[in-house]
Simulated assay, not measured.
Amino acid sequence: MIRFCSLLILLATPAFADFSGPVHVVDGDTLHVGNVTVRVHGIDAPETDQTCNDAQGRSWPCGAFVTEEISRRFEGETATCDLIELDRYGRSVAKCFVGGRDVGEQIVADGLAHAYRQYSMDYDLAEKSAQVLGLGLWAGTMQSPAAFRADRRAAALAANPPSTPTDANCFIKGNISGSGQIYHMPHNRDYDRTRINETRGERWFCTEADARAAGWRAARN
């Protein structure tokens, strides 16, 4: 019985493993390491189209600058990564190291990204040091990347308000995301915050059978 239970535990444990490969920079906090898409653990860099203000209050394209600067430093280098988890988009959230140095820590310490405290306090002190020294983005002012994304989502929803089901019995939400076509039931974690935009091909379903027949799969959470 003990051996059988141990086998069940092993089967239920995600087979996370370390990996390595050449780096291709996607944006300020996303890398391709070999054939693995990596969301760098514990950091939040400005979005590629985000702007900041310099010390004189002038707007400048800080998101594009950060991507270019990180590319200059790490593009083509070999990284070794410690996988922490998979995010809801299927990306590998990992700590990566180049030449033995923590990539995320370097980025935050040089003022090129925020410490993502919602998920980790690993780089809290690195960010505070960069802020005190006025390094990188801290030489001016910048909206947090999370707030920038929230404002952008709000503007998109205002421009394209989500639909509501025409039939009260058809309450299953067929959402399209980076993970594919996913349907959400009321008991699923993301049901309340999932919005249906029919102009993008999203839709409402009356039954799970209808959703599966149309090519949607059930949300995991």
Rank of each mutant, 00 (worst) to 15 (best):
Y123P: 01
L125V: 05
A126V: 03
A126S: 08
E127V: 01
K128W: 03
A130W: 00
A130Q: 02
Q131L: 00
V132I: 07
V132H: 09
G136M: 00
W138V: 00
A139H: 10
A139D: 06
G140P: 01
M142Q: 09
Q143R: 08
Q143E: 05
S144V: 04
A146P: 00
F148C: 00
R153G: 01
A154I: 04
A155T: 07
A156P: 00
L157M: 14
A159E: 06
N160R: 10
N160K: 11
P162N: 12
P162Y: 09
T164V: 15
T164Y: 12
T164A: 13
T164C: 06
T164M: 12
D167P: 07
N169G: 14
N169D: 15
I172K: 04
I172F: 06
K173T: 06
G174S: 09
S177D: 14
G178Y: 09
S179W: 06
G180R: 10
G180I: 08
Q181P: 06
Q181L: 11
Q181G: 04
I182D: 01
Y183S: 11
Y183V: 07
Y183C: 09
Y183M: 11
H184K: 15
M185T: 14
H187N: 14
H187A: 14
H187W: 15
H187D: 15
H187G: 09
N188V: 13
N188M: 14
N188L: 10
R189V: 13
R189M: 12
Y191Q: 11
D192F: 12
T194L: 07
R195K: 15
I196N: 09
N197T: 12
N197I: 11
E198M: 09
E198R: 14
E198F: 03
T199A: 15
T199D: 15
R200C: 03
R200T: 10
G201F: 03
G201Y: 08
W204M: 08
F205T: 05
F205I: 05
C206V: 11
A209N: 10
D210M: 07
D210K: 08
R212L: 14
R212V: 10
